[in-house]
């Protein structure tokens, strides 16, 4: 039955396997009975850390898809948005802050590029710059939150306040998490644990950082500008 879906391997000359000396066999074709030879070991396309991070990003994307679609439903059901008598969101400051966060992603990318060429100190400097930019973003966001609460925008201020704090807070928590991961990676680089040829952990961290940064412009447009 399987033969219908997948042709059996073409009839190859079958040799009794001697003790070594055969040329390396072709990759197993899979499906059904192969021929009489030892398959070669598997060579993964991507290391475990990066592969797992890609799946983590997929899950996080679904989390934010849930939050953002919830927000859009409420946003477009409202007759007037932002609702009257509510503080306006700080578009300009947050716009600049968006650039700060994007710059941190550039620094992380530069650090990963410096892994294979240049001294380790360059990687460390660039990671430090990225972490500092990320921390700056968080501080500015925190300051703006404090100001907004002072103006009277709280989580219970209708759909407007609730969605704002849920979405932006969820992203801020992710930046905190990514920053912690980046700091750990930085410590590992400083202690010499990531050599250029074994840098999957750092590359995975960079991937996650890019995700958290890349998410922000979407949230900025949806929550602040729309």
């Amino acid at each position: 039955m399987t033969a219908i879906l997948e042709a059996p391997p073409a009839a190859l000359p079958v040799v009794r396997r001697p003790d070594g000396g055969l040329p390396p066999p072709p990759r197993p074709t899979g499906g059904d009975d192969g021929d009489d030879r030892d398959p070669e070991p598997r060579r993964p396309l991507l290391d475990n850390a990066r592969l797992a991070t890609i799946f983590l990003i997929a899950a996080e994307t679904m989390l934010f898809a849930g939050l953002i679609s919830g927000f859009l439903v409420l946003r477009f059901a409202a007759a007037v948005w932002p609702p009257p008598l509510q503080p306006r969101l700080p578009i300009a400051v947050t716009g600049v802050n968006t650039l700060v966060l994007l710059a941190s992603s550039v620094a992380v990318a530069a650090a990963v590029r410096a892994l294979s060429r240049g001294p380790a100190s360059r990687v460390i400097t660039r990671l430090k710059v990225a972490a500092a930019l990320g921390a700056t973003f968080l501080v500015v966001q925190g300051y703006e939150w404090a100001r907004l609460i002072g103006f009277g925008l709280t989580a219970s201020s209708g759909a407007y306040g609730g969605t704002f704090y849920t979405l932006i807070g969820a992203h801020a928590l992710h930046v905190v998490g990514a920053l912690a991961w980046l700091t750990i990676a930085l410590v590992f680089v400083q202690s010499g644990r990531f050599r250029p040829e074994r840098s999957g952990g750092l590359r995975a961290c960079a991937l996650y950082w890019h995700f958290v940064v890349g998410l922000w412009p979407i949230l900025y447009v949806a929550v602040y500008l729309l």
């Binding site: 799946f55 997929a58 899950a59 996080e60 679904m62 989390l63 934010f64 898809a65 849930g66 939050l67 919830g70 409420l74 709280t154 989580a155 219970s156 209708g158 759909a159 306040g161 609730g162 969605t163 704090y165 849920t166 969820a170």
Partner: peptide, 25 residues
Amino acid sequence: LLLALPVLTSAAAMLLFDRTLGTNW
């Protein structure tokens, strides 16, 4: 699981915030 549960997680967070923080999802 990877793709479905985060959606429940987001909904559970909204429900919890509605109940405890006074959001109005």
